[in-house]
Design a protein around this nucleic acid. Structure first.
Length: 900
DNA sequence: GAGCACTGC
C-alpha cells in the first residue's frame, strides 16, 4: 500500500503528518460518537406506538406486483443468445491461443516466477479443454440415443395408437426393445419412423450413473399428483403437518443447551416460519429482546414476515415485522424480526454487539452471499462475550459440517425433509446446442416416461445460488418446444409449457402451483417434479482484480485492472445435486443432466465459489474497518477471500483517503462507511460538498445505482427511443445526462406519463428516487451540507473525478482509449453520449466486458483536475498530453511482485 | 455499434 506514499517526505514532514493523522483519528472517533448519540435518541423516539405498518406493507406488495407486470414488456429478439455465446467462445479460444504463443515468445521459461509458470500451465490446460470439447462435439453428431424407461410400463399415448400404421411399427419396435435394459428410442429407418422423425432429428442419449438415495426408500412411486393443501385446513393443522413439527421440543431443548446450533433442513421443512414462533412461545423474546432472522432477499423477508404474522394472528409490523432497505416495518412491540442479511450487516454499525437480540438466525446460510459470509465472522466473534445470545445457522443439507467446524464444532440439528430416491442420468456425449438438446430431451421424456411433471433449468444468471434464467432463452426454448409439439399433433398427450422467470407477472406464476389436469403433463419450474434436467452452464458475476492470477469461479483472472464481467461457467457439483434433489420431493424421480458423467467428475467444482471470493470487497472492507476490525487478513472468514482482492480493496481505500498509511480508518473513511455505496461513489458524494453541488451529485449517485436501466428501447420503436435519449444529452457526458433526466422527471412532478413519452423506465426512476431520498438522509446524518444551484458543470465533474480518479482513460494516438494507470485498451460504449465525441480525457463509471472492454457512463474531464483531486495518485508527468511517450514493449504486463 | 440479466445495502 505504500506505493502511493510520498517518498520525499523529510522527518519534519513526517512529524506533521503524524500530527495530522492523530487529529484525523480524533475527529473520526468524535464523529462516530456523535452518530451513536443520534442513533440512541432515535431508538428512544421509536419506542412509541406502531404506525400502520401492515397497511404500508400491503401497499408495498401491491406496488411490487404492478411493477412486475409493467416490467413484462414482450421482447422478441431476432438474435439468439446462443449465437452470441458461440461467437464469443471462438474469439476467446483464439485469444487464449495467441496469448500463449505471445507469452512463450516473450518470456523464456527460466525467467518466470513459479506463479507465472502456474499461470501459463493454467492457460494451456484451458486451451486443451476447449479443444477437447470441440472434438467431442464432432463426435456427438455421429451418436445414436437411448432413453431410460421403467420396465413394463409404456407411456399411455404409445399404447392407445397401437392399431394405426406408423404407431404399430413404432409399438412393435418398442416391445422388441423392452427386453433390453436400456430402452432405445428412435431408429435410423426414416421411412418407417416418419411420424417420429420430428422427434428423432436429434435425440439425446443418456446413461444412468447413480442413484441419489432418499429418506423414504420403501414408499412406492405415486403416479398421482401430490395431495393439494385443502383450503379449509386450519392454521394449526397446517403447522402440525410441517416436517419440523415433531422436532419442536427437541429443537427448543437443543437451543437452550447450546449457544450456537447448526440447523440443517431443506427449504419447505418449515424452519424459516416455525423456528422463530417456537422460540417466541418458549420465552426467548422476553425482556424486550428480539428474535432476529436474516434472509438473503427482500421479497423473502417481507413474505415470510407476513406469513408468520398471519399464523400468529397479529398485525404485520407489531409483534412480527421486517426491515429491508427503504423500509422498516417494525415497532417497539416487534419481537420477531425478519430482515435481509445486508440490513443486519448495516445494523452492526450502530449496534456492534446486537444488544437488542436474544436469538439471531442466519437462514439460507448455504447461499453464501457476501453479507452472510461477513456476518458469520461477526456473530461468531460476539457470541464469545455475549453468552446470552443464541445463534442459529441454517444451511440446506450437505453444507452443515463445514458450518459446524467453523463455529467451533457446534452441534448439528437435522430436520429431515421428505426425500425419495432420484436416478441420475448423464448424456453419453457432450451436447453442442443445449437448448435444442433440452427440447429434444423434454419430448423424449414426455413420450417415454410415465406421469410426473418436468422441471427444466436453463442457463441463467447465477446470483449466489439463486438462478435467474434469462428470459430470452426460456422464450426460445418454449417456442421450439411448442413448434415441435404442434407438429406432432395428437400423437402426444397434452404438454403444458409454463415458463417462469423474474419478470413474469405474478398471476402467470400462480399457474405453476395449480394442479395438472388429468392426462396432461406440465413442464414447469417449482416443486413437485419427477424429472429434473438442466444444463451445465450458468453465468457468474465475477470480479477480476488486477493482481489475482488464480482461478476464480473458473475464470482466469488475467486482466490488468478491476472489472466486473459476466462469464459462463459450469455449475458446481453441490448446486447440481441440490437441483437433482428437487425431483424426489413427492415420489422417486429421475434427473437428466445434459452433460457427461466425465464432465461432472472433472469439469465441475465441488462447490459454488462464494461471492466473497469473486467480487470487489471495497465496501465490505470499509464497513469492517468502521466496526473496528483492523486486521482483515486474520479476520475469521468461513472462506477467506483471495489475498490479492483484499489488498486491492485496501489500496483503493487508501488512495481514496478512507484509510491512512497505517491502514486506520480516517474521518473521511468513517463518513464513507455510512453510505450503502461503493467506496468510489461514496467519496464522490462526500467530495461534492466542497464543490458546492451535493444535491446534484446525490442525484447522479442515485441514477448510477439503478444499473443502466433508465432508457427504454423497445425493438419496434428504436428510432423514437434513440431520438428521445439524444434529447437528454448534455455536453460533458453521461453523468450529466442522467442528472438531466432526473431533473426533468422531477419537473414533471415524477410523472409516469412523462416517462412513457420520453422512453424512460418509470420503475427505475422510482428506484432512483428511493435511493436518492436515502442518500440525502444519510448525507444529513454525516453532517454534510446540502447545496445546489451552480450554473456550470465543472464543479459537478470535479466532484465525480474526486471519487473516480481510478477510472480515467485518455485518447491515444491511435484514436482509441487507454486507461491512465494500466494502459489497458478500452472503448466507449455505443450507448454513451460521448460515443462519437472522443474527448482527450474521460472518466468512466464502470467497465464491462462483453465483446470488448466497454466503458459505461462516461464523462469528459480535464487532466489537471486529477492533480487537484488526487495529487497522491497522479504525478504531473503522467498526465502530459503528448501521446508520443514511448510505451514499454510489453505494455501493461505487470509482475506479481509489483515491478514492471 | 451493442444487445442478453440482476441480489443486497
Amino acid at each position: 500500500m505504500s506505493k502511493y506514499r510520498k517518498k520525499e517526505s523529510s522527518s519534519e514532514d513526517s512529524d506533521s503528518e503524524e500530527e495530522r493523522r492523530k487529529k484525523d483519528i480524533k475527529e473520526r472517533d468524535e464523529f462516530a460518537n456523535r452518530l451513536k448519540a443520534k442513533d440512541e435518541s432515535k431508538i428512544r423516539k421509536l419506542a412509541m406506538p406502531a404506525g400502520s405498518g401492515a397497511a404500508e406493507a400491503a401497499k408495498r406488495l401491491k406496488i411490487m406486483e404492478t411493477d412486475m407486470r409493467e416490467k413484462l414488456v414482450p421482447k422478441l429478439r431476432v438474435e439468439s443468445r446462443r449465437k452470441y455465446l458461440e461467437k464469443r467462445k471462438e474469439d476467446k479460444v483464439a485469444e487464449l491461443e495467441a496469448d500463449i504463443i505471445d507469452d512463450e515468445y516473450l518470456f523464456e521459461e527460466e525467467i518466470l516466477t513459479d506463479r507465472e509458470r502456474t499461470e501459463r500451465a493454467h492457460k494451456k490446460q484451458l486451451l486443451q479443454l476447449a479443444k477437447e470439447h470441440e472434438k467431442a462435439r464432432e463426435l456427438e453428431r455421429l451418436q445414436r440415443y437411448y432413453m431410460p424407461l421403467e420396465k413394463g410400463k409404456l407411456a399411455p399415448e404409445l399404447e392407445v395408437h397401437d392399431n394405426e400404421p406408423p404407431q404399430s411399427e413404432q409399438s412393435k419396435w418398442e416391445s422388441d426393445q423392452m427386453s433390453s435394459a436400456v430402452f432405445r428410442f428412435g431408429a435410423k429407418d426414416r421411412k418407417a419412423q416418419q411420424d417420429y422423425d420430428l422427434l428423432l432429428e436429434d435425440e439425446v442419449e443418456f446413461v444412468q450413473a447413480l442413484r441419489m438415495p432418499g429418506s423414504e426408500k420403501n414408499r412406492k412411486r405415486e403416479d398421482s399428483p401430490p395431495p393439494q393443501v385443502k383450503a379449509l385446513q386450519t392454521i394449526q393443522e397446517m403447522k402440525k403437518s410441517l416436517p419440523i413439527y415433531p422436532f419442536r421440543n427437541d429443537l427448543i431443548q437443543a437451543i437452550k443447551d447450546h449457544q450456537v446450533l447448526i440447523i440443517e433442513g431443506e427449504t419447505g421443512s418449515g424452519k424459516t416460519t416455525q423456528i422463530p414462533q417456537y422460540l417466541y412461545e418458549a420465552g426467548f423474546a422476553e425482556n424486550n429482546k428480539i428474535i432476529g432472522c436474516t434472509q438473503p432477499r427482500r421479497v423473502a423477508s417481507m413474505a415470510v414476515a407476513a406469513r408468520v404474522a398471519h399464523e400468529m394472528a397479529v398485525k404485520l409490523g407489531n409483534e412480527v415485522g421486517y426491515a429491508i432497505r427503504f423500509e422498516d416495518c417494525t415497532s417497539h412491540r416487534t419481537r420477531i424480526k425478519y430482515m435481509t442479511d445486508g440490513t443486519l450487516h448495516r445494523e452492526f454499525l450502530s449496534e456492534p454487539d446486537l444488544a437488542s437480540y436474544s436469538v439471531m438466525i442466519i437462514d439460507e446460510a448455504h447461499e453464501r452471499t457476501l453479507h452472510t459470509d461477513i456476518l458469520f465472522g461477526l456473530v461468531k466473534d460476539i457470541t464469545r462475550f455475549r453468552t446470552d445470545l443464541n445463534l442459529l445457522i441454517s444451511p440446506a443439507t450437505l453444507d452443515a459440517t463445514k458450518f459446524s467446524e467453523f463455529f467451533d464444532d457446534a452441534p448439528i440439528f437435522r430436520i429431515p425433509g421428505r426425500r425419495f430416491p432420484v436416478d441420475i442420468y448423464y448424456t453419453k456425449a457432450p451436447e453442442a446446442d443445449y437448448i435444442d438438446a433440452c427440447v429434444v430431451s423434454i419430448l423424449q421424456i414426455h413420450a417415454t416416461q410415465p406421469s410426473g411433471d418436468i422441471l427444466v433449468f436453463l442457463t441463467g444468471l447465477l446470483i449466489n445460488t439463486f438462478i435467474i434464467t434469462s428470459q430470452d432463452e426460456i422464450e426460445t426454448c418454449q417456442e421450439m418446444l411448442q413448434e415441435r409439439v404442434r407438429r406432432l399433433g395428437s400423437k402426444l398427450r397434452e404438454l403444458l409449457i409454463l415458463p417462469i422467470y423474474a419478470n413474469l407477472p405474478s398471476d402467470m406464476q400462480a399457474k405453476i402451483f395449480q394442479p395438472t389436469p388429468p392426462g396432461a403433463r406440465k413442464v414447469r419450474k417449482i416443486d413437485y417434479f419427477s424429472f429434473v434436467k438442466y444444463v451445465a452452464f450458468v453465468v457468474y458475476l465475477v470480479y477480476i482484480c488486477s493482481s489475482c492470477h488464480e482461478y476464480s469461479g473458473n475464470v482466469i483472472n488475467d486482466r490488468q485492472y478491476s472489472m466486473e464481467s459476466l462469464m459462463v461457467v459450469p455449475i458446481s457439483k453441490a448446486s447440481a445435486n441440490q437441483r437433482a434433489g428437487r425431483a424426489g420431493r413427492v415420489a422417486p424421480g429421475k434427473c437428466f443432466r445434459l452433460y457427461t458423467a466425465w464432465a461432472y467428475q472433472h469439469e465441475l467444482e465441488d462447490n459454488t465459489v462464494p461471492e466473497i471470493q469473486r467480487i470487489n470487497l471495497g465496501n465490505a472492507v470499509l464497513t469492517l474497518k468502521a466496526l473496528g476490525i483492523n486486521d482483515l487478513v486474520h479476520f475469521d472468514f468461513l472462506d477467506p477471500p483471495p489475498h490479492e482482492t483484499l489488498v486491492l480493496a485496501l489500496e483503493q481505500l487508501y488512495a481514496l483517503g478512507a484509510l491512512n498509511h497505517r491502514g486506520e480508518l480516517t474521518k473521511l473513511g468513517r463518513r464513507m462507511a455510512e453510505f450503502p455505496l461503493d467506496p468510489m461513489m461514496a467519496k464522490m458524494l462526500l467530495a461534492s460538498e466542497q464543490y458546492r453541488c451535493s444535491e446534484e451529485v446525490a442525484t447522479i449517485a442515485a441514477m448510477l445505482s439503478v444499473n443502466g436501466a433508465i432508457f427504454y428501447r423497445p425493438k419496434d420503436k428504436i428510432i423514437h427511443a434513440d431520438t428521445a435519449r439524444k434529447n437528454f444529452h448534455i455536453p460533458g457526458g453521461d453523468h450529466l445526462t442522467l442528472l438531466n433526466v432526473y431533473n426533468q422527471w422531477r419537473q414533471s412532478d415524477f410523472s409516469t406519463h412523462w416517462c412513457y413519452e420520453n422512453f424512460i423506465q418509470h420503475r427505475s426512476m422510482k428506484r432512483a428516487r428511493d435511493v436518492r431520498e436515502q442518500l440525502v438522509g444519510l448525507m444529513q446524518r454525516v453532517e454534510m451540507e446540502l447545496v445546489s444551484g451552480i450554473t456550470e458543470t465543472m464543479n459537478i465533474r470535479k466532484a465525480i473525478t474526486a471519487g473516480y480518479f481510478y477510472h480515467v482513460a485518455r485518447l491515444s494516438k491511435g484514436g482509441h482509449y487507454k486507461t491512465a494507470k494500466h494502459n489497458q485498451t478500452v472503448s466507449i460504449h455505443p450507448n454513451s453520449s460521448l460515443f462519437q465525441e472522443l474527448p482527450r480525457w474521460i472518466l468512466y463509471h464502470e467497465l464491462v466486458f462483453t465483446t470488448k472492454e466497454f466503458m459505461r457512463q462516461v464523462t469528459e474531464i480535464e487532466s489537471k483536475w486529477l492533480l487537484e483531486v488526487a495529487p497522491h495518485y497522479y504525478k504531473p508527468k503522467e498526465l502530459e498530453d503528448s501521446t508520443n511517450k514511448k510505451m514499454p514493449k510489453v505494455a501493461g504486463r505487470s509482475r506479481p511482485d509489483g515491478t514492471n
